[in-house]
């Protein structure tokens, strides 16, 4: 039976892992390669590295980071942040990333998803969606781009389904309302998206307790749960998380 994945997320800025509250107020959490290797040793199923600066200068740094991680970590990892072209995806995959996530560039140019899927296979292509609850349309979420700074008129559920159709192999769904709050995932959002697509969905944003992770899987239907603060700062270990979920009859790799 396929297990639910526990995925620590490492937001990287200037070669350091940082974690903000609601995408702001960055706080230092350590060296990305070291932290990645530690998570691998602790039993994480996968890692996500997000380059949150995503400038031309940081692009070279992120390729070097991917190379270093790949030399030291023997579990899959996804890299994302500011990726715009098939060539950049190719470079990151060749450097050792298992998957690449695209966000803003896919909104601007949806063919990026189909071209990448046909070349690399859809299992490499992760569509990252930053979702914000719509003030105008209750019960709907709008897609935000440019690291969450720019809301669009695109509906999250429709965009997720469109992304799947174009060739995305997975959706990394971040609730901007919940992110960094430690108040729980937005499981209405997770449920709306997992019901609308057939590809795996990684729930992200809001993990504060072990119950939150369980709820994202059971209520939200998430195939995987992403977390940062609760594991970076030592509140819980990966083992704590997996033992808790296993006791509640969720299949985990333990």
């Amino acid at each position: 039976m396929l297990t639910r994945r526990i995925i620590p997320c490492l937001d990287v800025k200037d070669n350091r892992v940082v974690k903000g509250i609601n995408f702001l107020n960055l706080r230092d959490a350590g060296d990305p390669v070291e932290l990645g290797a530690r998570y691998s040793d602790m039993g994480a199923d996968e890692l996500v590295f997000l380059d949150i600066t995503a400038t031309i200068r940081s692009r070279k740094t992120i390729v070097e980071l991917v190379e270093k991680v790949a030399e030291n970590v023997f579990i899959p990892f996804t890299v994302g942040g500011g990726i715009q072209t098939v060539e950049q995806i190719d470079e990151l995959l060749r450097s050792g990333a298992e998957k690449v996530s695209v966000n803003t560039a896919a909104v601007a140019n949806p063919e990026l998803l189909s071209e990448s899927a046909q070349r690399f296979g859809n299992q490499c292509v992760v569509l990252a969606i930053d979702a914000r609850r719509s003030k105008e349309k209750p019960g709907k979420w709008q897609v935000c781009i440019k690291a969450g700074s720019e809301p669009t008129d695109i509906d999250v559920v429709e965009w997720a389904a469109k992304g799947e159709e174009l060739g995305a192999g997975e959706i990394l769904l971040t609730s901007m309302d919940a992110d960094g709050t430690k108040a729980g995932y937005d499981n209405e959002l997770n449920k709306a998206v997992t019901d609308a697509v057939n590809i795996p969905v990684i729930a992200s944003g809001g993990a504060g307790t072990l119950e939150h992770l369980y709820d994202a899987i059971v209520d939200g239907g998430a195939d995987a749960v992403l977390m940062a603060s609760i594991t970076h700062f030592g509140n819980y270990t990966i083992r704590n998380i997996k033992e808790y979920l296993r006791e509640k009859d969720i299949a985990v790799n333990l």
Binding site: T3, Q123, P200, D223
Partner: peptide
């Protein structure tokens, strides 16, 4: 075959 999440992605026994 359809009827399950595809891709088959993650750790399986």
């Amino acid at each position: 075959p359809a009827g399950r999440v595809i891709p088959h992605m993650g750790w399986n026994l």
